[in-house]
Nucleic acid binder design. Sequence first.
RNA 1: GAGAGCGUAGCUCAGUAGGUUAGAGCGACAGUUUGUGGCACUGUAGGUCGUGGGUUCGAGACCCAUCGUUCUCCCCA
Length: 451
Amino acid sequence: MKPSIPQGTRDFNAVTIRKRNYIFNTIRNVFELYGFQPLETPAMENLETLMGKYGEEGDKLIFKILNNGLDNPAKHEQAKEDFEKILEGKNNKNITERALRYDLTIPFARYVAMNHGQLTFPFKRYQIQPVWRADRPQRGRYREFYQCDADVVGSNSLLNEVELANIYATVFEKLGIDVEIKINSRKILAALAELSGGADKMIDITVAIDKLDKIGIEKVKEELVQRGLNENQINIIEKYLSIRGSNEEKLIAIKKLADENATAKKGIEEIEYLLNFTIHHSPLTIDFTLARGLNYYTGIIFEIKAKHVTMGSIGGGGRYDDLTGLFGVPNIPGVGISFGVDRIYDVMEELKLFPDEIETSTQVLFFNLGENESRQAFELMQQLRNKNIRCEIFHENTKFDKQFKYADKKQIPYAVIIGSKELAENNCVLKNLQSGEQQTLSQNELLGFSF
RNA sequence: GAGAGCGUAGCUCAGUAGGUUAGAGCGACAGUUUGUGGCACUGUAGGUCGUGGGUUCGAGACCCAUCGUUCUCCCCA
């Protein structure tokens, strides 16, 4: 058979992993710097933990795991009956009890609900793990990808939003990615729905206006008509969507439009608080069309867009009032953000933002020039390794050409040559393979050399 | 879930209106070169043309199906 891997998954070679680790480490260090603690949860969750949390579309994209033991003849009749329900589109514990993690937020909420008695609030955790979605793969979209999340639960303070916005700004600055951190408030969106007379239409409205920059105002209006809004309602939404300008200008305009509405007023105040508090050069931009799909957001929402490149959002998040309520533990509010590492990787690759030095692996190659020579080389190599220098010795005694070419291909910066002459004189030749310069050193000098 | 493009050597691709033995570059391996690499030159290996069917005297090319992959829509990281 031809070996292959599942659609939308990838193998990662050494170079790729080094670059990814560079991203992971950057994010992790900032998370730690802000006082977040690590958490890991299982790759799979009980299906019922995940179902219904991501909207109707989300449910379809959850990878479900077939139960074991269905081939047991004693249970055939029951299994067939249960499978009928699957065909009707209903989930059935007897067929699929577990599913692969779809994001990191819901498993975190489940964890908090299970352990709220032991946790010190506010509880700040970060989590860096892969998630799986049964989406059709395309540019910037994979079926297995990493998310890096930071969440704070057990606090209503907007200081948390400030902290998270600063984490976003700091990480992307460290990575060298020019981004726009778009913010909006679900409260303002809810108010818009109220004002345009369709509080129950909030999801319809947000889904439609989210597409504004993609399909244009006319198409959005068409979609709103299709979703059952009347002309008057659409006029209000159009006014809302026509708000342009700087953050200040947008705030003035939205106040004019919706300030009498208590919910909107609250949302506007929150955005103002965040903008006034955040480090002043941070790239926060109000975007009133930002809606975000996940239904559980209730306050400020974030989304990250990389500049100079065509790529979906590389991060997102927001405040949710009562996520653990879904698991029977009410009144624990939270707010969180997520980094999409695989898209960040693609953006950095395209913009050539990875520093060169992360690609070096082995620092020193010891040449193998004979039985006794290589024994001495081996001895020295072990001593260098004890000094934390990454070394290897060529696997067989062969001509120089081979050994040099091996070093070239692995981009090893130094070669140590110990031939019969060096062996006799108790020294070695150290060659810098980039510059071509070489020097004869005593073996002691080699051990003290700073690579 | 809907739609489009592409599958020829390890990689990137060529292959002219269907015509004999399927090509190139890069890479790999070997040699020129058993104490000095990157360059150059020479040579060698490597292909069920994704798979299965069909049209034809003849298919890498045309048709159908299927699988894989890329991209778009939907939605998202």
